[in-house]
């Protein structure tokens, strides 16, 4: 299977795979970086985004409405979750936060299962991205190409929010020094709530954008969550650029390994993560501070 066209195709495919992982991972990482909370329900929120979007699609038949509905619903869920549950856990040990989000993840999955059953739900790609495009060295589903663009726009939007807005300044200051932000008289809780909402929205957005590629079932979040962990660990916990870089690396590993021995592509991902940890424990772009 090792031929130049195939290598080019797989390398490109790795980029597509990595783009979605990067988006999901950046949601996880900005929440952790700002709030210090590792949200184990992040995978479940990816799934909820997919379902919310599919429901909207079934009523409207519009891809754009579906994407908006999926993202906004999960953002609302994130805001609610922060306000009702997570807020009470800031002064508790980090393990408690992990446990409660782990439990909430199960609750979300089973609630969705109860509502929609276990058969997969799907949604076609929008008409402007249906079909197949020829790239010369390969043919590729048009929608997957579109996803690269869509995710790039989403990541850019996140970047603008994180690096070019007042909220972003507070958030990044918070990543570096939570106490300092506190002492500036900023309503930290409100910032936290918004960040949690944005982080969740990233997962929800990725969830619905992914539906035309892979129909969803209530369980999809679990494997996504584990892959997201790997991405975040490789890139550096709490680092937005790290999440993007980690996502792209993970995508390439998954894709390129499949040329040599497809069965090992998942395991290769974990091995690379282990290697990164041994050589550079804080992750590729991780800050020294948080760990």
């Amino acid at each position: 299977m090792l031929s130049l066209p195939n290598f080019a195709a797989q390398a490109f495919n790795g980029l597509v795979l990595g783009a979605l992982l990067a988006l999901i991972a950046s949601g996880l990482t900005i929440i952790y970086g700002t709030l210090g909370v590792l949200n184990l329900a992040h995978g479940a929120m990816f799934m909820v985004g997919g379902y919310a979007g599919v429901v909207a699609y079934q009523y409207t038949g519009s891809y754009l409405v579906a994407v908006a509905a999926g993202s906004l619903f999960v953002m609302a869920l994130g805001l609610l979750m922060e306000r009702v549950v997570i807020r009470h856990f800031y002064d508790r040990p980090p393990e408690d936060q992990i446990l409660v989000t782990f439990g909430l993840g199960i609750v979300y999955v089973e609630l969705v299962r109860l509502t929609f059953g276990s058969l997969s739900q799907s949604m076609p790609p929008p008409s402007w991205a249906a079909g197949i495009t020829s790239l010369g060295f390969m043919i590729y589903p048009t929608y997957r190409l579109a996803v690269v663009g869509i995710v790039a726009v989403a990541l850019l939007a996140l970047y603008l929010v994180l690096y070019r807005s007042r909220l972003g300044m507070i958030v990044r200051a918070g990543i570096e020094d939570a106490v300092m932000v506190d002492s500036l008289g900023i309503d930290v809780y409100r910032v936290f709530m918004i960040v949690f909402g944005i982080g969740a929205m990233a997962a929800g957005f990725a969830g619905i954008v992914n539906v035309p590629i892979a129909p969803i079932t209530p369980d999809v979040g679990e494997s996504i969550l584990v892959e997201t962990f790997v991405v975040v660990v490789i890139g550096g916990v709490g680092s937005f650029p790290g999440a993007v870089l980690g996502g792209l690396i993970a995508g390439e590993i998954l894709s390129l390994t499949s040329m040599v021995d497809p069965a090992y592509s998942q395991v290769m991902l974990f091995l690379v993560m282990t290697f990164v940890l041994v050589v550079r424990p804080r992750g590729l772009l991780g800050e020294q501070g948080r760990a």
Partner: peptide, 23 residues
């Protein structure tokens, strides 16, 4: 022509499918 082995619970088959397409 080719045997693309994927782990149980794979959610994205694109890399395997590219290999199939090129086989």
């Amino acid at each position: 022509a080719t045997d693309q082995v994927s782990p149980l619970g794979t959610t994205d088959f694109s890399s395997y499918l590219l290999n199939v397409a090129n086989s």
